[in-house]
Computed example of a mutant assay.
Amino acid sequence: MSLDVVVVGAGAMGAATAWQAAKLGADVTLLDRGQVCGGTSAHGVGLVTRLLWEPPDIGLVAHSLDRFRELDETAGASFDYHDTGSLLIVGPEHEDEVQKVFRTWRAQAIDVRPVSPGDVAEIPGCADLELAKAEHAFFTEADGWCVTMDAVRAMVDEARSHGANVRPNTPVDRVRDGLVRLADGDELEAEAVVVAAGVRSRQLIEDGWRPPIDAFRAQAAVLGHEGNRSGPIVHDTPNRTYWRPEGSGQVMIGDGTDLSSHEPGLEPSVDEAFAHRVAERLRDRWPAADPIHEVRSWADLEAATPDARPLVGRVPDRERVYLCTGGNGFGFMRSPALGEGLAQRIVQKGSPVPLHGCEPSRFEEGYGTGFPMQEGFALD
């Protein structure tokens, strides 16, 4: 007999959970208040890099990388994973930390190599990047990027192919233990309810323990530039930016520096100085790209947790309610692994995908919002 699973939220984490639960044989219903990938996941830069600082995150992205490649093979022309490689640039103040994490990368079988400032030009697409002599760089060929909306839609299509019922434009009012109350008054019963609604997840769980989720504004832009760059994704920590190719003569860029709290119900607006700020930082690293101009920019709300770790697992004091949220600005690149791990726990009562440090029960009852923000995708 199949297990009834309702997933609330058709962004990256919800789509991944629905895909893997349906693949394991569960009877899955995927709900979203709008269109599939109509929220925060639609606006991500889409980087997929294992050059991170914490071993659990490195492992999760490595697992997700395999799933993105699997999607690339099964989705046909509707989704492409761009295997461009990843370049990480760090300043001298972080030399000790990076040398330590370099050993972790190697221990996890990541084929990463240090690159001197003078040798960065040998990496395809990086001939015009300028690094100071004291800076350090690391490069791996297996990382890359994808269009987030295409990836989420491909995961939802995979869920459908395994029998999932996908219901867009179905807003949810509240979630109780094993019960989803829709905004129109209807109710859905399930043996497991997964709340994967980003910053709205806190509002949906009724009574008792409340998820420690706050919202911060994330901004990104597409910048036009001189020439045509088709090199790797770049995480430029001294300039606090990360960017990737975006068509001919363009890059998509983010900075993740606005960590002020925002009310989940508010629609965030772009800081007027944002595009100018990231253009200056791009120009500093890549002078040959000038003249640089703004094509478009946008903002959205990211779900943050007090320790910058996701919330994935059963909700304390509930038997049939689970969370899959709290990406802290880099949830997309880990979403296939997080969704698969949670689906395995629900359907198989165990998971080979390690979710250590993600359990919601690590926070005591009553932990509220308004905590100091930490950027997950950063060195400090």
Rank of each mutant, 00 (worst) to 15 (best):
S269N: 10
E122Y: 04
G231A: 09
R285C: 01
F330V: 09
T140W: 00
L51F: 03
F216H: 13
F138R: 01
D150W: 06
P245R: 12
P92H: 02
L131N: 02
L47D: 03
G247P: 12
G198T: 06
E122H: 09
V234M: 07
E97P: 00
G163M: 04
A18P: 00
A137H: 06
A183H: 13
G185C: 10
P55W: 11
G341C: 11
E95W: 00
E97Q: 14
G350M: 05
G125Y: 07
E246S: 12
V222Q: 02
P306E: 07
L52R: 15
P287H: 10
F330Q: 13
F68C: 11
R69P: 02
P114K: 04
T241G: 00
R285L: 13
A197W: 10
V90G: 04
F216K: 11
F216Y: 10
V5K: 07
A151S: 13
D157W: 04
V315M: 05
D32V: 08
D32Y: 09
I292K: 10
F371L: 08
C126P: 00
G329F: 03
L88G: 09
P212C: 03
L338H: 04
A220T: 13
H162R: 13
P211L: 15
S269E: 14
E364I: 09
N328A: 09
E54R: 15
D214V: 00
G208R: 04
T325N: 10
G208C: 01
D290H: 14
V312E: 02
P124Y: 05
G44C: 15
P55K: 13
S78Y: 03
Q219V: 07
D236K: 05
A279F: 05
E135Y: 06
V251Q: 05
E280G: 10
R176G: 13
D284K: 06
A154E: 08
P352W: 12
G265T: 14
P352D: 15
D83V: 04
R33A: 15
Q344E: 15
F138P: 02
E280I: 00
R240T: 13
F363Q: 10
R309Y: 06
A289K: 05
D57Y: 15
T305R: 09
V28W: 03
G163S: 05
D300Y: 14
D66A: 14
A77H: 12
R50W: 04
G339M: 10
F79G: 01
S161L: 00
D317G: 01
V278F: 02
P360N: 11
M252S: 10
A16R: 06
V6I: 15
V61W: 11
F363M: 09
E365T: 14
E187S: 13
R281D: 11
V175S: 05
G366H: 14
